[in-house]
Amino acid sequence: MSNIQSQSAEKPQFYLEEDHHPEGSTNLGFWLYLMSDCLIFATLFATYAVLGRNYAAGPAPADLFDLKLVAINTAMLLFSSITYGFAMLQMERGAKQETLFWLTVTGLFGLAFLGIELYEFHHMIHEGATPQRSAFLSAFFTLVGTHGLHVTFGIIWLVTLMVQVSKHGLIAENRRRLMCLSMFWHFLDVVWIGVFSVVYLMGVVG
């Protein structure tokens, strides 16, 4: 609380209009953004579903995918989801250091996910399975790459918010921002369920 009062002198103007826009409307607006993002992924999933078997005599999913790696990747994203949940619980308690700790853990799991995914992409491209090789690989790299880009921007957003929280504390604005990133992060985990089910598992089953 003392932190909040010491900051209040330099509060930006938009803060004063806060009570005309209750926190709920931001949540709904952000939810609508997530739903439109969901449509982007739906079109990419549809593209993959249509083109996923057009190998052009190139490698098939069973030749390329290492399910152990995908399982580790899935675990990384799942762990990051629950650690973000713990960060939100600490935020509710108003515990700044604990919130920052769990956000750091979340970011590290996110980075591990990205690292494994980049390793997988690098390995595939090294073997000649580039996006240009076949319609299946174009659709694969677009779908999984778009998800990876979302995770990348999620991590950038996470670091930005960690700086904000460490500078200004858990003020109402930062709570709202953390809430939005929470929805974004869990949404990415939901999309990943679709990716590992449709692309990796069904691809290997054939």
Binding site: I4, Q5, S8, K11, Y15, L16, E18, D19, P22, E23, G24, N27, W31, G85, M88, L89, E92, A172, M179, M183
Partner: peptide, 24 residues
């Protein structure tokens, strides 16, 4: 703005049940 902050905190606490829940 301090009193506003308090009012907002009260509003936040009050409307907690109506917003998207934060889970336990």
């Amino acid at each position: 703005s301090t009193s506003h902050e308090d009012a907002h905190e009260a509003h936040h606490a009050h409307s907690h049940g109506h917003e998207a829940g934060h889970g336990s």
